[in-house]
Design a protein around this nucleic acid. Structure first.
Length: 328
DNA sequence: ATGGTTTTTACTGCGTC
DNA sequence: GACGCGGTAAAAACCAT
């Protein structure tokens, strides 16, 4: 796409200048905040809610960040260079990235006649055949992506990235053989995880209407074909969302996080569903903070059974070398 | 398909409010 | 007596192979 100027501003960075300024930003110790509560500099972003949490104490440091600046996220500085640009923003959530030209709308056609009119029809047909057929099939993937993202309250960055990947997937014939809709759902799953706002297979299966099994197969395939490496989902990533929904205090949430980390160090994680660890850790952390939650409440919110909580809770106690009697 | 592991289901008894 | 909690066994689901 071209570097066209569409803003009214007088200082538009041109390409070369832009690279430089991106570099400067990097050297600039960008965003080195400290948590006002505990001074920690480690944060976790919950972009679904537009909040930034302190990793130490769970304090919400910043909120309402959704859509504040750019529609893309830079995961590293090289990506920043690639994505930074002048000109109008493109969006991947439209098949033609929102920059296409339509040939011949009905107004134009109805206001010309004869030879000219015939010509318009031919042009329109040609345009449809060449670009639109591919774009229409892409659109079949983009619509479900948007729907799922919105139903699961995911940030629009997920929609953007999933849409971008959908285009790549189309070019590599990933849709063929596994179906467009399942692949679309799989892309959302993949991107949500990549952006640290994971949703479980169950959740995506539910809103997409794709069977969990199929979704699982599809996402693994899709990730492999697109060369995306999936690191296992970490329990911590699910924590803020559930803690919030339950009304767990910030300090209990921070404890839960520490419990999870400690448990991982002790090797409790392997083979377990991330949810399971969250459930056990939240239950224990709530107890430690004298916040009474029943197993049932936590179980229902997180989507595990009470038995699972009990087992996981035991695992957490073991990992921490805590005696049950010493609690409360 | 299979087999090993985790999670759920179903059922139990115990204590408390 | 309903509720919360804890345990157990067997069934079901999950996942790598």
């Amino acid at each position: 796409m071209s570097e066209v100027e569409t803003t009214g501003e007088s200082t538009i960075p041109v390409k070369s200048e832009l690279k430089q300024s991106a570099k400067e930003e990097d050297g600039d110790e960008e965003e080195r905040f400290e948590c006002p509560e505990c001074g920690s500099t480690e944060f976790m972003e919950n972009s679904a809610k537009g909040e930034i949490y302190c990793l130490e104490c769970g304090n919400v440091v910043d909120e309402d960040r959704v859509d504040q600046s750019k529609e893309w996220r830079a995961f590293d500085s090289s990506e920043k260079d690639k994505k930074a640009r002048a000109g109008g923003s493109v969006t991947y959530t439209k098949a033609d990235r929102g920059i296409g030209t339509e040939i011949g709308n009905s107004y134009e056609i109805n206001n010309v006649s004869g030879r000219k009119r015939q010509q318009y029809y031919r042009m329109r047909k040609w345009s449809r055949r060449t670009s639109d057929s591919q774009e229409r099939s892409l659109e079949d993937a983009l619509k479900p992506i948007k729907r799922i993202v919105s139903q699961l309250n995911l940030p629009s960055s997920v929609s953007e990235e999933a849409s971008r990947l959908a285009e790549k997937a189309r070019d590599q014939d990933v849709f063929k053989g596994q179906g467009t809709r399942p692949t679309a759902a799989a892309l959302v799953y993949i991107v949500a995880r990549k952006q640290n706002v994971p949703r479980s297979l169950d959740e995506i299966a539910e809103v997409s209407g794709i069977k969990k099994r199929k979704l699982g197969d599809t996402y693994r395939n899709t990730a492999r074909k697109l060369g995306i490496e999936m690191t296992p989902a970490q329990p911590e990533e699910f924590l803020p969302r559930y803690a919030e929904a339950l009304g767990l205090s910030g300090s209990a949430q921070a404890d839960a996080r520490k419990i999870i980390q400690k448990a991982r160090d002790e090797g409790v994680q392997s083979g377990r569903a991330p949810k399971t660890m969250v459930a056990g850790a939240v239950y224990l952390a709530a107890k430690l903070n004298d916040e009474e939650f029943t197993q049932k409440e936590i179980a229902e919110e997180i989507g595990v059974t009470e038995v699972t909580i009990r087992n996981s809770y035991q695992d957490m106690l073991d990992a921490l070398n805590l005696d049950e009697d010493r609690i409360e």
